[in-house]
Design a protein around this nucleic acid. Structure first.
Lengths: 339, 339
DNA sequence: TTGTACGCGTTATCAG
DNA sequence: CTGATAACGCGTACAA
């Protein structure tokens, strides 16, 4: 049986409420009493029971993390450990705990979130993805649960707090970079179109082409739904064209790896035969071969800021909705070549 | 204000205790009452408050996950999302919640674990790594917190429940595979030596050589502490040898990628000039170039079983210590060649 | 400055 | 089969 506030009180010859006030560092307790009680707490190795405290304070000091469904392999993307590292950092310094959504399918995850929220396990929630028509988001909205989103909400932009990159701008930048390298036939390889990040990056790509006076060809725009098997189709489609692209904007490093690998099988070499830029600057983009020219989107900060704003929202319920844009930076390596 | 058990009781014309019994599906409640109460619960959208329940039952229905410190990049290893997926699955079906350790440095993580455990946030804990002389493990041992470990404990093997692969056997297997391919000069590239997994795989490698009557040369055994910068040194060391190895056993896919990349810079090609086998069968080992011959260690199951046994331990405090070995399987791809 | 008394939402024990 | 009543460990008005 763990030591409780009563044990401390008894040992210090005060009442539990006094001990409670010492814990809260109430200004109305004499220094002397505080010192005595603190000493006793130390001696007894007292740790407040958070369940009890939470029950009394009607809050949990816990934030929930909601992952996308992990049925597709996208889950293995090292993007997630990185965001979590950022969140974890902020949580640690603010003494918040982190709780994870459980389950695999979309349905399970939804159930998990409902359980987590309804049963009062968390004070707020971070959505680690942004998808069109997301049930989870609708639920949180409905229940008025404080939440922040990593990525751009597909609606209610001004009403939902989120932290994102300027994905349109970034995609525009890299496309221009390719244009400056002399490429004219530039393709775009995206992921699932229901993901906001895909939409934004595609938009940036299109804008850059338009500004350069290059017509957008839908033959050059492909979407790879499932990593692994998807790459085959995409590449097949691309190389069957009469005029194959000389460069590709790919929305994710992992996908870029897949592309490189599949292209290679067809005897097409990167960057000699085709240039590739991608996004995220995952660790493995340096380990790739060739090392990838990619956009560093500061994943850690994405998580850190998301946690920070969420905690602010929890503490101050009428905090206004915010939009935070984390800066990005293109990292030039060896996957692109002048034409 | 959420709807509580009292609201339900009032609306159903019974007492809170009856409602509580209906929730627990007590056999001593009439079917009729049960039906009525359940209907009311549904109508009101009642969800039990877990904090209160936990307080009363003195348990939390939550398991804690403890990550290694994330200061080094090892954290970006997709190994973790995968184990977590396994844990998450088991947790979901058993209605357990998952809580994460917070913090970045070893010290912070230790503090986090102490906080998590002492303040009663979790019923038990899964250690996602296995390291020599780990403070956290000592703490859990001391406080008699139920825990399972993924990997092999460096001591008290028979006393601590853990789930692991037969890493010695697996390493032996792949080394033999290389021997059969005709290789005689086989090197070993490991990670930090304080990690049990490194030790075991190295042992398997050595045993295979011994059995083949090949002397173990310490020139051929190198350890890459930090991914990224480490590869350079390791490769430099290896190629400076008079007789360079013709094959390499590398303990992790990510490291293998790094090796391939660095070797390439020196004009050494895989598998033409040197063969490589590695471990884990991460998604990206298929995306690598060349696709990696690697050992699938069933990461998902590692997590799933760890969660399962932990929950058994929590429910039954005198459950004996167990050792679970998850089967592995070598996946042959294109990073090795006959000599 | 400190103590008293009650409440937070449940479960458990003991009656009936 | 169901209803009181007392915990669980802590926070907080209110009183002193």
């Amino acid at each position: 049986m763990a030591v409780t506030i009563k044990d401390v009180a008894k040992a210090a010859n005060v009442t539990p409420s006094t001990v409670s006030r010492v814990i809260a560092d109430s200004p109305r307790i004499s220094i002397k009493t505080k010192q005595k009680v603190r000493q006793v707490m130390k001696d007894l190795g007292y740790q407040p029971n958070l369940n009890a405290r939470n029950l009394a304070k009607r809050c949990t000091q816990t934030i929930g993390l909601i992952m996308p469904n992990s049925t597709d392999k996208v889950f293995q993307n090292p993007f997630f450990p990185e965001v979590i590292r950022g969140i974890s950092n902020m949580a640690h310094t603010t003494e918040y705990a982190i709780q994870f959504s459980t389950g695999e399918t979309e349905e399970q995850i939804y159930d998990g979130v409902v359980r987590m929220v309804q049963s009062g396990r968390v004070d707020g929630v971070i959505l680690l993805y942004s998808r069109i028509n997301d049930k989870v988001m609708a639920f949180l909205e409905d229940k008025e649960v404080p939440y922040t989103m990593i990525g751009k909400p597909y609606q209610n932009m001004d009403k939902t707090t989120h932290v994102d990159n300027d994905n349109i701008g970034a995609a525009k930048e890299v496309t221009k970079y390719l244009l400056n390298l002399g490429h004219k036939r530039i393709g775009f390889v995206g992921g699932n179109l229901s993901l906001m990040v895909t939409k934004d990056r595609r938009q940036g790509y299109e804008e850059a082409l338009e500004e350069a006076g290059i017509a957008i060809s839908h033959d050059y725009i492909v979407h790879e739904d499932s990593l692994i098997e998807g790459g085959q189709e995409v590449v097949a489609k691309l190389i069957s064209l009469e005029e194959t692209p000389t460069a590709l904007v790919v929305v994710d490093d992992l996908m870029a790896l897949d592309m490189i690998n599949t292209l290679e099988k067809h005897g097409i070499r990167v960057p000699d035969d085709i240039s590739i830029v991608s996004f995220n600057n995952l660790l493995l983009s340096q380990l790739a071969h060739p090392p990838l020219t990619t956009v560093d989107i500061n994943i850690h900060d994405l998580g850190f800021q998301a946690a920070k704003t969420l905690i602010e929202m929890i503490k101050n319920s009428n905090e206004p909705a915010k939009r935070l844009i984390i800066p990005h930076k293109m990292i030039e390596r060896n996957s692109c070549k002048k034409i």
